[in-house]
Write a protein that binds this DNA or RNA. Structure first.
Lengths: 134, 134
DNA sequence: ACTGTGGTGAGAATCGTTCTCATGTTGCCC
DNA sequence: GGGCAACATGAGAACGATTCTCACCACAGT
């Protein structure tokens, strides 16, 4: 049970990862990797852009941040709760609200099953203009 | 009503646009711009890649094709029906089924209204493995 | 045919993202 | 407390999709 152990952590707590986590804690809308990189610089830390990308990808993989794509296909991130959810995002200021929709989850699974599709996942984002920006 | 006429076609039927339309008619899954460009070449036509991009963007704008982003953020297109719908896409072979979900439309509008968001739009795609690829 | 407004294409330019690889850190066993 | 192997980092190069530039071409209406 040593060589076949799949539980190898492989993630070490480094200064850089702490800086990224700290930056993520500082906002609650979606930001691009470059914006997050800038934020870290503003906090007086120095972390390479490549490391920011690597760390964000790892956090997304671990389910600790949400990653989605804006209209230009650019990846944007934000920290998130650990339950499955979707987002209601303000098109103007970026304000984001997490929403849950068990009915939607059920619907997507039903539709997929109906067509024989397996191993289902889905993306759902809602965009609008928030009360502040009306 | 001449200078303010918003109905100016501004779109001319050229050999290139016909070639793109023809290529789009030849498949019913989502393809990248480069793949569509290759398809056109295989059909014996020659159209610049930039023109393919321009034409696809115009068609998407006009609602004649759907454009979405794959997991890498790359834009992919396919021709579509003109009613609002979503897609069930095979992660492996790209086979695509258009699906409609009035309930989802209602749900997104309700959620948005509940939080005071206006001018709502949404994106929803379902990914899975189709029966063929199981 | 003539002309002006779009349209086109080759290649350069952008820009987000990933890769390379030499160097710095960390965890850990002694 | 030292030593080592594995993992992490960063600077910059490389990549790849998309857009821009700009000189040239084609369509539509006279």
């Amino acid at each position: 049970m040593t060589s076949t152990d799949p539980q190898r952590p492989a993630v070490r707590p480094t200064r850089q990862r702490r800086a990224v986590a700290s930056a993520l804690a500082g906002f609650d809308d979606f930001r691009s990797a470059q914006e997050i990189h800038d934020l870290i610089s503003q906090q007086g830390e120095s972390v390479g852009l490549a490391t920011v990308y690597r760390t964000l990808a790892a956090l997304a993989e671990a389910g600790e941040v949400d990653m989605l794509r804006n209209e230009d296909g650019e990846a944007i991130w934000r920290s998130c709760s650990d339950t499955h959810h979707h987002h209601l995002v303000c098109r103007s200021c970026g304000a984001t609200i997490e929403v849950e929709g068990p009915a939607v989850e059920r619907w997507t699974n039903a539709i997929a099953a109906e067509h024989g599709y397996a191993d289902i996942s889905h993306t759902l984002e809602i965009f609008g203009t928030c009360p502040e920006c009306r």
